[in-house]
């Protein structure tokens, strides 16, 4: 049941942080999604985030904006994403949808929970659905065995961190005030953020936003239970459109080795 928790426990038993890569469904094409997910699985991903493209992704930086725009221009539909995911979920680590709230609201919260569960999806991350607005969504998701992943930001109050202690899956720690994207350095506040969350919440904490290189993954993996890498992977895919499965494999393999080395040294 708790596939996400199990994935984190496995990583912890191996003495390392869990690796959570992100890809946008429909980019470069929806037909390539199964191959990409297989590559990420083979490279050692513990959980995989699959982005459902949205016309107005206000939490995303330029790389993921472009991927969503292209995916939509190519005709990517929510139902098709669900169909493709249902074909790959049994042979993949836990899959988590990253979607904005309007496509979920439009689909119908209950219907989307039902169809996500049928497709084998383990969780939802909805960046424009803050915890205070999420009651109906998380209760419905929970009924279908789907975890609505709570987010914690550098600006989050203690009150918020107490509230999300009742959440499921893991806590998505947003490393910076800002949007997704490739950054030169890990924000110095990451350690403080993780410590603050852990003060209130028993769930594992995975950190994302701006983590781009094996060195940065290693740095974050020292303090967090999981490392989320999105824009840098999508950029790798964009730079190698014709051989994106191999490029994605190599890139994620590099991240995983950085986390493994950390455990070897520790």
């Amino acid at each position: 049941m708790d596939r996400i928790g199990q994935a984190f426990r496995t990583a912890r038993a191996e003495g390392r942080a869990a690796l959570i890569p992100y890809v946008t469904a429909g980019y470069p094409t929806l037909e390539q999604l199964p191959g990409l997910v297989r590559s990420l699985t083979r490279a050692g991903a513990d959980v995989i985030e699959i982005g459902i493209p949205f016309s107005d992704p206000l939490a995303d930086g330029p790389i993921l904006q472009r991927a969503a725009t292209e995916a939509l221009a190519a005709g990517t539909r929510v139902r098709d994403v669900l169909r493709v995911v249902s074909q790959i979920s049994t042979e993949a680590p836990p899959l988590v949808f990253l979607t904005y709230i309007n496509p979920v609201f439009r689909y119908g919260i209950e219907e989307f929970a039902r169809d996500s569960a049928q497709a084998g999806v383990a969780g939802w991350i909805i960046p424009d659905l803050p915890w205070l607005e999420s009651r109906a969504v998380r209760d419905t998701a929970q009924q279908y065995g789907i975890a609505l992943i709570p987010l914690a930001a550098p600006t989050s109050t203690d009150q918020h961190l107490k509230a999300i202690a009742h959440g499921h899956g893991f806590v998505y720690g947003v490393s910076v005030t800002g949007v997704t994207g490739v950054r030169d350095a890990v924000d110095t506040g990451v350690e403080t953020l993780v410590a603050r969350v852990k003060n209130f919440v028993d769930l594992p904490v995975a950190v994302g936003f701006g983590i781009s290189t094996p060195a940065q993954a290693r740095e974050v993996g020292r303090v967090a239970d999981g490392v989320i890498v999105g824009s840098a992977l999508v950029k790798t895919i964009a730079d190698h459109r014709d051989a994106c499965e191999e490029a994605a494999y190599q890139f994620v393999r590099g991240l995983r080795e950085a986390l493994d080395n950390l455990s070897a040294k520790a």
């Binding site: 915890w131 205070l132 607005e133 930001a153 550098p154 600006t155 989050s156 918020h160 947003v174 005030t177």
Partner: peptide, 12 residues
């Protein structure tokens, strides 16, 4: 109505 924004903005 409501408040559908990233968690980062809620305190603001």
């Amino acid at each position: 109505g409501g408040r559908y924004v990233p968690e980062t903005l809620m305190p603001a």
